[in-house]
Design a protein around this nucleic acid. Sequence first.
DNA 1: AACTGTGGCCGTGGAG
DNA 2: CTCCACGGCCAC
Length: 679
Amino acid sequence: REEREALEKSSKAEFIPYVKMWSSLLTQPLPKIKRASLDIEVASPDEYHIPSPEEAEHQVIAVSIYGSDGRKKVFLLKRGDHSLGDSKIDEAEVLFFEKEESLLEAVFLEMLDYPFIITYNGDEFDLNYLYHRAKNLGFTEDVIPINLGRDQAWIKHGVHIDLYKFFANHALKVYVFESKYVENTLNSVCEAIINESKIEFEGSISDLPILELGRYCFNDARITYMLTSYNDDVVMRLLVVIARVAKMPFEDLGRLGVSNWIRSLMYFEHRRINALIPTSEEVSARGTIYSTAITKGKKYRGAYVLEPEAGVHFNVAVLDFASLYPSIIKVYNLSYETILCGHSECRSNIIPETPHWVCKKRYGITSLIIGSLRDLRVKLYKPLAKKYPPGSDQAVLFNTISQVLKVILNASYGVFGTEAFPLYCPPVAESTAAVGRYLILKTVDECRRRNIKVVYGDTDSLFISGAGKGEAEKMIEWAEEDLGIELDLDKVYKYVAFSKRKKNYLGVLPNGNFVLKGFTGKKSNTPKVIKDAFYNVVGILSKVNSQSDFEAAREEVKKYLKGITDDLRKKKIPLADLSFNVMISKDLSEYVDTTPQHVKAAKQLERTGRKVKGGDIISFVKTTTPDGVKPTSLAKPEEIDANKYIEYMKSTFEQLLDALGYEFDEVIASTKLEDFFWA
DNA sequence: AACTGTGGCCGTGGAG
DNA sequence: CTCCACGGCCAC
């Protein structure tokens, strides 16, 4: 209450009701949700055949249900020609059925005990298959607890959450799960998030001994459930908080993207205040785009990225605007109905760098909603999450709220620039970005005026070198007074190394930890051998404090890299460590302009009978064969093109050595790559 | 049917 | 050989 009242006090009158409303809603305790995960296995003629849920022509041979109440059951079909085997399923109660009909009946009955059913891809497969299979076996609608929508399976008595769609949500993936997984499969997500895997086996699932099949199926249900239970049920908590903010049922928000959450939230607010919801035609008729984008194919000009000053800079403070775009929406009163408003007296209220004006008479609905949510995150929930001991109920709640608000706030400006959003209003989006550029450039000017050296900046951040704490604090005060926008001291680096490249730097913190941004050496598709080498070299170099340290480190790096290039030439590196892992983003036939390397590899895979679809990660190695690449699974060690890998290593390390080289030029005779690779 | 945005780096493929 | 579009992944 204390913190909330302080926030209310510092807020303008129009925002106070929103602060009250949001905080009383969001601070409600989080419910425990009774639920069970469900996974099925279907007989299949061979390992490459994926049974069609619509036809459901093959038997359901195993089902597992893993409940939050501790009940865990495996339902197995006895098949005369299959042995039981001697696998153990320790945790679960194992039930055998002579007839598939009885198995399904028992499964349906068990499902009725749980108000929430959790699956991984149940919309497309598990529940879809169960429904059609039951129909094929003569079950009537009233005994099947499943309804099918176009792309969705519902359960009649409760809520079905399909985690596949939840974890595929890009905004959650990046901002909540920190891009820890790339592929959206159950195995990839589980390995990245809960350090669990699917059970591996060779051949066709139908050939497994019955108990081994049960063990496999149960494990899938178990890890699916764990995705909702790890870290104190964080996924369930996220769902609850998103539902509260977005005013949307669990079933929808788990399947829809952030833009739909924001639409739902905005529409709700219109109804609450008895405002008419405009048609999208009305909104887009308000104005057109003025700026031109830097990137071809984009609609309007975005953020400003400063040229980094190449070299090593010591004692670098990073200033950044707290939640910049939502702050701009709030402070500049940006909303679809305030931009280019009808009042002649507002026409002088021009948005910097644009011809657009904005209303002076009243606050816009977006400004109020996004502005208040921004304040709640920055001034209430983030500090509150830190105030309570980690793991306490309060810290857990406030962290969840904070994460959800981060996701929604990050998308809140972008939605106005996408046609699919029903309140699409490009002047709002481009004005937000334009003010962002204006603010950061004004801040750079102010730094220069105060003789503070700016060495880099991107969108909402400025890297300043050699400034003391006092100077940084004065800049923060200046921003508050002159810009009306909150600037924070994000962190202070012991040193930062820039090459000439934007979005690419190494920063070393006082405790010795380092921050790497943008380097090829840390990208998810880079082969493991190069990625490992890159991190090891950074580790060696980050310990350098003096000239003699550096000489020793340089020798160590040289020896280390030489070892790797030798192994490469002698074909001693396992293929798995040489794999590039690149996602195929669309069906193979849609690559019409060019045939990138991962597509070449995928086409080779298809010729061996494997199916490839959008979203799959293709593992390939560079070879001396005609295509220049081969899928990892089809390549032989002697086909590896060692020179290609050495080239790739060189350019990977060039980003790093370029940055370090400028400063250490005098210290060592040369930092040319050749010294490292062939000296 | 559903889909937040722009800026930037890198390697490759295809055209001339 | 040069040039530049494409495609993927990342920063913010």
